[in-house]
């Protein structure tokens, strides 16, 4: 019992849970291990995965960003509408990236410079940006005129679709950013002890602003890929995304109290959520019940975090 506890609460606890879940699902759910299903599973988690990379940074800072779902929808709308308007997919993508970056920067500046609590500030932008997405399209889905846009999601290399490559590149980039750059280490230092970090000469405001700016940018990428996959700009897409993303991060061992995050953990967290959803679909579990299961998973994730903090606290 004691051993099991140490295993689950230790650094490798997530991997253990992941492996167990994977094996169980492989055995009990038919068709789960097929190549088609695996690719489908990965494609399904792309949005959550991309946004989790930067949410990890925000949480490591001891902040949170609730506006991610809205930014994904808004950036997707911008990408589709700009592409339709200019006839150029590249310009559409650029416009969406700029839109995401701007929202992120606004979040960051409001939080870092005006000293507004991140939860409140992003709760506000969440609604504002969702409003912008709805206004820009008059509340309707917008179809894509330029067929090249679909390639972003549907084109495959070596049988693997583009979004999965993007996801892997994101994992690599943000793993590097978190572990090997001054920015990443400062982020963890600030989350662990903001006062000490400031007195040690860390530029706290700058770091916070860029965390949120990157978050906006990642949401834009996710929004572009999402609209390509669903072949239209949907102002009501990605509602509730923030909760899935936070669940994935927490499941991945990111501490809500800041200062603790690993990329590998977040990857596992994302995959656990993806597997749960995928398995429920394969087993034809009604969508209503899926909400239930997702809620329980989130609760368990937070519980795990609290237990782990307490275990750590005792060691200190």
């Amino acid at each position: 019992m004691q051993r099991l506890k140490r295993l689950l609460l230790g650094d490798q606890g997530l991997v253990v849970i992941f492996v167990v879940a994977f094996v169980l699902v492989s055995v009990f759910v038919p068709n789960f291990l097929s190549e088609r299903n695996m690719l489908g599973l990965l494609q399904a988690v792309v949005t959550i995965a991309l946004v989790s990379c930067t949410m990890m940074l925000c949480l490591a800072l001891r902040d949170v960003d609730l506006s991610v779902g809205s930014i994904v929808a808004f950036a997707g709308m911008v990408a589709v509408m700009a592409t339709n308007m200019t006839g150029s997919v590249i310009l559409g993508i650029l416009a969406a990236l700029v839109a995401g970056l701007i929202v992120g920067l606004v979040n960051g500046i409001v939080i870092a410079k005006l000293k507004i609590n991140a939860l409140i500030a992003t709760l506000a932008t969440m609604q504002i940006v969702r409003g912008l997405a709805l206004i820009s399209s008059d509340g309707r889905a917008v179809g894509i005129d330029n067929e090249n846009f679909f390639d972003l999601a549907l084109r495959s290399f070596f049988t693997i679709p583009v979004p999965i490559y993007v996801m892997v590149i994101f994992f690599l980039i943000f793993g590097f950013v978190l572990n090997r750059t001054v920015f990443g280490r400062n982020t963890l230092a600030i989350g662990g002890n903001p006062d000490a970090a400031r007195l040690a000469g860390v530029n706290v405001d700058w770091t916070r602003i860029w965390c949120f700016a990157l978050q906006g940018l990642a949401c834009a990428v996710a929004g572009i890929l999402l609209s390509a996959r669903i072949t239209s700009g949907q102002p009501n897409s990605a509602i509730g995304l923030e909760l899935s993303v936070i669940s994935a991060c927490v499941l991945g061992g990111v501490s809500l109290a800041g200062g603790r995050a690993t990329m590998s953990g977040v990857i596992v967290g994302v995959l656990v959520l993806g597997i749960a959803e995928n398995a429920m679909n394969l087993l034809n579990i009604q969508a209503f019940y899926q909400y239930l299961v997702r809620g329980v998973i989130l609760l368990l994730a937070v519980l795990l975090d609290s237990l782990r903090s307490r275990a750590l606290g005792r060691r200190v």
Binding site: R185, A189, G192, N193, A196, L199, A200, G201, V202, G259
Partner: peptide, 23 residues
């Protein structure tokens, strides 16, 4: 409260300020 960066290694606690010179 204001000095050490909890949860970070001795190495990081030393390097936090000076690393800007060689990164």
């Amino acid at each position: 409260a204001d000095g050490i960066l909890q949860g970070r290694s001795v190495e990081e606690n030393v390097a936090i300020s000076t690393r800007r010179h060689f990164s």
